[in-house]
Amino acid sequence: MATAPEARQWDRNGNEAVIEVRDLVKIFQGRKVLDGVNLKVYRGETVTIMGGSGCGKTTLLRCIVGAYKPEAGGSSLFGNDIAKITPDELSELRKRIGVVFQTGALFQSMTVGENIALLLREHTELDDAIIDIIVKMKLEMVGLRDAYGLMPAQLSGGMSKRVGIARAISLDPDIVFYDEPTTGLDPIMAGVMNQLIMGLADNMRVTSVVVTHDMNSAFKVSDRLIMLHEGKVVADGTADEIRLTRDPIVRQFVDGLPDGPIPLRRSRVPYIEDILG
């Protein structure tokens, strides 16, 4: 199993690297959340980033899309260094990516249909009639066509997440970032989401980066899995390689073991010191 990406721009099938992260360091309040992360994602791949809560998965995702500025290192999308492009160029680049936020992040004053139509209205010249059909198609793809006229406040958490997915894929992006796409969904709807992620990759040329704790989903949808631990990439391999690895850190996470090299994320102050004053 490789522990660091190779210095290549294409995978063995000739697909180019559409995402590249180089020696990325991100610090929050003196804590190195990301500590020299390197990775590449190739066109058409579905890559899952896994790791314990607070290990920096979401931070990594935000650095990749330019929402956070790293302290060192950087990232490129489609060969464009995020730190070196103008805000207008970044905005142009963002039309080619879709981001599914953990909570759905919908605009509360708009209907579900309006939320999904928003990016299409902002970034395309398409007629309203065409946009309306696209909105209905996207809602059908996430199993929520009946929610077209509802307000976000009328949706459950799982429904909001699915609307967020419909919105993220409204422009048929080249890359979709999914932040915990199946968390909070019932098993059937989680299966629908897995199928959608795989279908978009197989048929719509979509490159997917999935941040998740859900190992069932990760093994099902991923071409490759990357594990973050203490801000570093500690594993990078195919589903089979990760499933069979003897690396104790990966094993503990994949098997969901309470004891192992990954400490329980409790207070950094020793318990005895804290409770006895």
Binding site: T124, L126, A129, I130, I131, I133, I134, M137, K138, S170, D172, M204, R205
Partner: peptide
């Protein structure tokens, strides 16, 4: 070779 959502919507219309 390829059709995106706007193409599908055009056929639906």
């Amino acid at each position: 070779d390829y059709i995106d959502s706007s193409g599908l919507a055009t056929l639906v219309e």
